[in-house]
């Protein structure tokens, strides 16, 4: 599903009418997990998919990352374009849990990703130092993950994904397992990183406030099957503040809209 021919535009991820079906293991009954999803992520943009838990958002990210497959006969296309010299597009993935290799030091966890991506060894040290500093963990190179707090482990995971300088950085509810104070701090720091490194991000969350605060583009997704029912552009320059009235009003408006759609769905389902 991934190609390396460069498009004329600055598109990094192009999803067109993507449908994914899934057969229940016991009954063989067919489920539609993703229902003609279309979205575009352009270079340097921050796109966010907001939807209720279990709606299939992670499935979409997994297909982009290549750890789940998309059967072309289900319909639709999904393309990821490389904007670097790499043969294949580089995908960085930050999961809900840090998913670090606990037996390797912080530095070795990062070089694991760099080596996997066949990035020249000469660049490793520079990349590790640069991105560890960016996530606020300078000096932690030789430490082991289990000596770090959950928030710090997630920072390492973000540094690891950034270090490969990915064409697309996928983030799957990366702050949902953290306490709210830590999560809030992480969001501010991510904003800071966005202003410096300008990565292209596809960020999945169930938290509309988080999406409005961080994203340029918001795709709102309903559940069963997952369908995108609205696409909004958030045209507010960074740095943003959560208490900024523009952000706050937009969040209120979207929450209202979001729940009216979900409630409607609930009623239909009986």
């Amino acid at each position: 599903m991934q190609t390396d021919n460069k498009p004329a535009t600055e598109t990094v991820v192009a999803v067109n009418n993507l449908t994914k079906k899934f057969n229940a293991p016991m009954t063989g009954e067919e489920f539609v997990v993703l229902d003609s999803i279309s979205l575009n992520v352009d270079k340097g943009h921050f796109a966010s998919i907001v939807g209720p838990s279990g709606c299939g958002k992670s499935t979409l990210l997994n297909i982009i990352a290549g750890i789940e497959t998309h059967d072309p006969s289900d319909g639709g296309t999904l393309e990821v374009f490389s904007h670097s010299d790499a043969e294949q597009p580089r995908v960085g993935y930050v999961f809900q849990n840090a998913r670090l290799l606990n037996w390797l030091t912080v530095e070795d966890n990062m070089t694991f990703a760099l080596q996997s991506q066949k990035i020249s060894k000469d660049l490793w040290k520079e990349r590790v130092d640069k991105y560890l500093e960016m996530v606020g963990l300078e000096g932690q190179q030789k430490n082991y993950p289990l000596n770090l707090s959950g928030g710090m482990q997630q920072r390492v995971a973000i540094a690891r994904a950034l270090a490969i300088e990915p064409d697309i950085l996928l983030m799957d509810e990366p702050f949902s397992h953290l306490d709210e104070i830590t999560a809030r701090k992480m969001r501010f720091d991510l904003m800071e990183i966005l202003m410096h490194a300008k990565p292209t991000i596809l960020f999945v969350t169930h938290d509309l406030g988080e999406a409005v605060f961080l994203a340029d583009h918001i795709y709102m997704m309903s559940t069963k099957p997952a369908k995108i029912f609205k696409h909004i552009e958030v045209d507010v320059p960074r740095p943003r503040k959560p208490e900024d009235p523009v952000i706050f009003d937009l969040e209120k408006k979207l929450v209202k809209e979001f729940f009216s759609v979900l409630d409607e769905q609930l009623l239909e389902d009986g």
Partner: peptide, 13 residues
């Protein structure tokens, strides 16, 4: 399995 998936997204051989 989640670590194996992680390694695969980074294209570990």
């Amino acid at each position: 399995k989640s670590l194996i998936d992680m390694a695969k997204t980074f294209r570990a051989d």
